[in-house]
């Protein structure tokens, strides 16, 4: 579990730097793709399936842990109140976890 969290921290750290430095040049009609948010959504969607066999606990909480880490890094580069992005992403991940566990594949 801790190894997975360490990997997530490194992954989201570099992704946030990439998002705020590289991707700022590429936008469509002024809108910029948010890779960090997209990654959190993908992890929320597919982590239950990836880890269902090996590690049940990871399967259930990986989405929320990812949202927390990603939210922290986004908060560092945001102008809003520190922690606001964590709240938003954790709420999104929690909502997705609820829907997936109740209606989809676990």
């Amino acid at each position: 579990m801790f190894k997975k969290i360490a990997i997530l921290v490194i992954f989201f750290y570099f992704l946030t730097l990439f998002q705020t430095s590289f991707l700022t040049r590429f936008n469509i009609s002024g809108y910029q793709i948010n890779l960090v948010l997209l990654s959190v959504i993908l992890i929320c969607l597919f982590a239950p399936r990836w880890f269902a066999e090996k590690d049940k606990r990871s399967a259930r909480y990986m989405g929320i842990i990812s949202a927390f880490i990603a939210g922290f890094f986004l908060s560092v580069y945001s102008n809003a109140v520190f922690g606001f992005e964590i709240l938003v992403l954790v709420c999104i991940a929690g909502f997705m976890k609820f829907i997936i566990e109740r209606y989809v594949w676990i």
Binding site: F14, L17, F18, T20, S21, F22, L23, T24, R25, F26, V76
Partner: peptide, 20 residues
């Protein structure tokens, strides 16, 4: 965080410049 990340961000910023 900014101090720690500045060298990496500089690399990404310059790469973004060239790519764009």
């Amino acid at each position: 965080f900014y101090v720690f990340s500045a060298p990496i961000q500089k690399v990404f910023w310059n790469a973004g410049n060239r790519a764009s």
